[in-house]
Design a protein around this nucleic acid. Structure first.
Lengths: 216, 216
DNA sequence: TTCCCTGTGTGACCCGGATCACCGATTGGC
DNA sequence: GCCAATCGGTGATCCGGGTCACACAGGGAA
């Protein structure tokens, strides 16, 4: 199985990369890695030595408290990269987050030592990295808004619609417990709220399955 | 009153800037702005057209919910800059945050159009910007940790010691109401918790005054 | 001094979500 | 088809913090 991309592939996945030299080095240096759904791409405390560009699939990024409990932060999907990882790469720090494949996922891993150099050489790379930081920063601020300002019912509604959007499907396959973990609340609270959402005709519930009924 | 810095000044405030050309353009393009304690440097919704480098003083960055209530995010102090602002500059977006002078503060404002160009020309500028993003990202994650995982008593203790550290003084001048706003909780909760901290010998309380007793 | 305003202390009650306990329903393995 | 494990539903109770009400204290202004 081939673990490289051609320059044409790189350009197809990332049309924002325009310099031929950049396409060339990404094709040369990048290595393809595949993860099955649920596969742990990076865990809390790991050292990070490569930057993942997502070619296919979706990655779930979450934060872990010291006691092991989690909090969902955001999804990354095709064409995106992970600014938190970039930051860890640069400083040779341990990861502060956990990344898990939400579905079968293919990434292109770029070796840490080159990334910084490319910033000054290729404008479109620099823009890509800056934009990645930007987007993640905004996601983090929105996460703070949610945790600090919103009630659980709103958070749950947002979570469900976001997760449905990622799947491009109105049905989510997940247990109440898994959702509770992501939102860092109790399973009972989620069960009760989902029930009231069902009573209001917002969702249909089944074992391991939630279907959005209302257009969000 | 002079509103410029010499290249020597720039180098003194920001020893990490090494390229003579960089020192020169910063000295040429930068304009000094002064804010009294409590002055609003940037408000939610403003357009951002300059990047502030902090020369003296401290700036408090906070997030505002739609209903006007706030949440303290972090402090910026001398030698630092504001990545959120940088991000807004680049995208010509409205500010997502509010910046208020925590004490009398002097900043050097750099004009938005030049910043991006410097990234590719001056390595030490690029490193400075990347490091700024990094630090803010980490602060945001730590804020999320606090809001999501910690109890109010811990959050308050952290807040008090952080604020004392910024002042380099064991005494904080602030009302309970102001603290409650920063932590986005009720005044009564803060009053009660401070009282129990006083009973435990952790702080001494006075009108508009909190003094840390225990070494943190 | 007196008055008033702001800041603080405190009780009573409310409410969302946590926790505990337990039951029933679904499903996968055999 | 049976069993065990997992998943979901639901009541009881607890607890942290919000909200309301009000009393009191300190300090500045006249």
């Amino acid at each position: 199985m081939n673990d490289r991309l051609t320059t044409e592939d790189v350009h197809r996945y990332f049309p924002e990369f325009v310099e031929p030299g950049l396409l060339q080095v990404i094709a040369n240096e990048g290595r393809i890695h595949r993860f099955a759904e649920g596969g742990v791409i990076m865990d809390y405390g790991n050292y990070v030595r490569m930057l993942p560009l997502i070619l296919e699939g979706t990655i779930k990024i979450s934060r872990q408290a010291d006691d092991g409990s989690e909090l969902f932060l955001y999804y990354l999907t095709r064409g995106e990269s992970c600014a938190m990882t970039f930051s860890c790469c640069m400083a040779a720090k341990r990861s502060e987050i956990r990344a898990v494949a939400e579905e079968d996922t293919v990434i292109l891993g770029l070796p840490q030592p080159k990334l910084d150099e490319w910033m000054m050489r290729y404008k479109s790379w620099k823009n890509f990295v800056m934009q990645a930081y930007d987007q993640r920063m905004n996601e983090l601020v929105r996460t703070i808004d949610q945790v600090a300002f919103q009630q659980l019912d709103e958070r749950l509604a947002d979570y469900v619609s976001k997760r449905a959007a990622i799947r491009e499907d109105r049905t989510i396959l997940s247990t109440h417990q898994a959702i509770a973990d992501d939102l860092h609340v109790s399973r009972e609270a989620i069960s009760r709220l989902l029930k009231t959402m069902e009573n209001r005709g917002m969702v249909a519930l089944g074992r391991n399955r939630i279907t959005l009924l209302q257009p969000s």
